[in-house]
Design a protein around this nucleic acid. Structure first.
Length: 257
DNA sequence: ATGACGCGTCATACGCGA
């Protein structure tokens, strides 16, 4: 099963790219973030013609997540429990072929001296709690999306540049590592411990040309899912195509066992 | 400290992202 996560930075702006890319790569499960569109306006029929069912948690202008599956899945939640006042569309979960997929768009959290950072920490606490509960089922769980977390020094080109940023904050990194300590595995790092492998490059300051990137889009696997890991990779070439997102797709290939 | 680039919006400036 080919599984991929991709922060598209606006689904409407990325339709040409997405159509060509889906035809070329033919994933079974696609997790999208920052679709920046209401469910009612989502170009559902275009994806359906390509063979995908669409499960949406959209929002006007900002945020918004979706999961596309080849054939039918079962929508299980659009809510990350723990805060009834949370109005931001950042979570959707489906079951597909006996696997549980959580697509997340974790808050950015900048600037750190504002409520945005408090919201990020609170959101991460809820994610840790939810992912801990989920493990009790021994299901195959795939948590994937834009985590807005640089886990380690090797996950950015210039740690100094990020020292005071919400993406590299020590408390944020600690909370990310809680997920690993629960038993989830970082699918890219299982197979590749090199540096200079990134998933996002700023549009500004020639960041792509200079490979000044960050690895913030992740796929975490429960131990039972990791048992079936056959491959993982970052599709960085997409960043040099015309009209790119600032993020690129991150893939895992899971055997069916 | 600021702005840079791109997206979306009750657009032709501004909020937001990372």
């Amino acid at each position: 099963m080919k599984i991929v996560t991709f922060n598209v930075n606006g689904v409407r702006a990325r339709m040409d790219t997405l159509i060509e890319w889906l035809k070329d790569t033919n994933p079974d499960v696609v997790a999208l973030q920052e679709i920046k569109i209401q469910d009612v306006d989502f170009p559902r029929t275009i994806f359906e013609k390509l063979g995908y069912n669409c499960y949406l948690n959209g929002q006007k202008s900002f945020n918004g997540v979706a999961i596309l599956t080849k054939g039918e899945a079962k929508l299980s939640s659009k809510v990350l429990p723990g805060n009834n006042d949370d109005q931001q569309a950042r979570f959707i979960e489906v079951y597909y072929k006996r696997k549980r997929f959580m697509c997340i768009y974790l808050p950015n959290g900048n600037p750190k001296d504002t409520e945005k950072f408090v919201y990020k920490l609170e959101w991460m606490d809820r994610l840790v709690e939810y992912c801990n509960e989920a493990l009790k089922s021994e299901e195959e769980i795939i948590v994937l999306g834009d985590f807005n977390v640089i886990p380690q020094y090797d996950d950015c080109m210039s740690p100094k540049q990020w020292a005071k940023d919400a993406l590299f904050d020590s408390e944020v990194r600690t909370k990310f590592h809680y997920l690993l300590n629960l038993g989830y595995l970082d699918a890219i790092r299982i197979l590749d411990n090199s540096n200079s492998i990134y998933t996002q490059w700023d549009y500004r300051d020639r960041a792509w040309e200079e490979n000044n990137g960050v690895r913030i889009d992740h796929i975490l696997l429960s131990p039972t899912a990791a048992d079936n890991l056959e491959d993982s990779w970052i599709e960085s070439t997409l960043r040099s195509h015309a009209k790119p997102s600032d993020h690129v797709p991150v893939w895992v290939l899971l055997g069916d066992k």
